[in-house]
Amino acid sequence: MAYSDKVIDHYENPRNVGALDKGDDTVGTGLVGAPACGDVMRLQIKVTDEGVIEDAKFKTFGCGSAIASSSLATEWLKGKSLDQAEAIKNTQIVEELNLPPVKIHCSVLAEDAIKSAIEDYRRKQAARRAAREPKAEAGSEPQPAAGVLHDR
């Protein structure tokens, strides 16, 4: 099958290949795969306190279209807010890379990877907030519970 020039460009010169620290609270990691073709894709974002994606990296083992889709995704992610990033659609990737119908699933994989990286980041942030404010919650919540006990 003939790849478009843009796919070949991303395949030969992939942007932002690599890894960010998975243990970092400001990093979200998405790991997705297509068992029907044996592809695996990791996409990571690093987010500032203001909620802007300052860095994005990917590593994909798969076909040229899967590599190009994730490479393009990291390019698009940098500088975007999480909400803007979440709005990226696989159809935009298909259009930009001229993917043929049989390769549309590669762009779907990239969209899934973006969403799952954002989700991972939000989960970590929620966990961090919960860990930072245990006293406030522990102090206020047991009281009504105790009150219920007294009522009985």
Binding site: V32, G33, A34, P35, A36, C37, V40, V102, H105, V108
Partner: peptide
């Protein structure tokens, strides 16, 4: 095939 097998 591609879209028929569910998630990994």
């Amino acid at each position: 095939g591609e879209t028929k097998e569910g998630a990994a």
